[in-house]
Amino acid sequence: MSHLVSIDNVDMRYGGASGTLAVSGLTMRVDKGEFAAVVGPSGCGKSTLMKLVTGLHIPQTGVVVVAGQQVTKPVSIVGMAFQNPTMLPWRTTLENILLPLEIVEKHRHRLRANKKEYVEKAERLLEIVGLKGFGSKFPWQLSGGMQQRANLCRALIHEPELLMLDEPFGALDAFTREELWCVIRDLHAAQGVTIILVTHDLREAVFLADKIFVMSARPGRILKEHRVPFERPRDLEVMYQAAFNDMVHELHGEIAKARVAA
């Protein structure tokens, strides 16, 4: 079985031996090409999970394996997007999207010589997310939703095998959020990338994911793993089916219980 991400019995404590234990006994697996969502009460260590998988934190005990290799330093096969789009205001949107290519070892040496090819790739991505022709604009000339689209492009430009999303749509209005759900759904279908989405929004998790992990309150561990049964491609209409609502309801109940247990 080829797991792209496998986390085994991981403990992560911040600030020395007496510090807060953020996650404890965390075990989860995500297959290649899968769309996984992680939900849980606030402060349950979801962001810690992000940092463990990307290699920004190395756990004190337990093992994190990404793409067959134990994580001991940042893994560059990952793209990341946060709730805050963190576009650099002195670069145009296109230049922002090309930024990872200036960093990743594989691309940085051939960027200058193959600039045209990379720019075309960035423009294709912009078109997919519905930002065609906005590459020359500065990020602060774009709306919040548009910045978040550009942020997705930046996370995908170096063709990562794994995309880590930390509540990327949290700050957007309901309609823009639904639009971006469809964008990310189509990107996942078209690019075959593995995605781990950390979110508070249960409908978002059920609509997008193949597999949902429910985390406990701090110290975080996986309480339950759900398979999402709905057929792909999913339409926004799926959210109005009874089965969809039942699943959201069930998740809601589990998280409410985890909060009380804390």
Partner: peptide, 12 residues
């Protein structure tokens, strides 16, 4: 911003 730093550090 720590998030900007995280995005870049994760890329190596």
């Amino acid at each position: 911003e720590p998030e900007t730093e995280d995005v870049l550090r994760a890329l190596g």
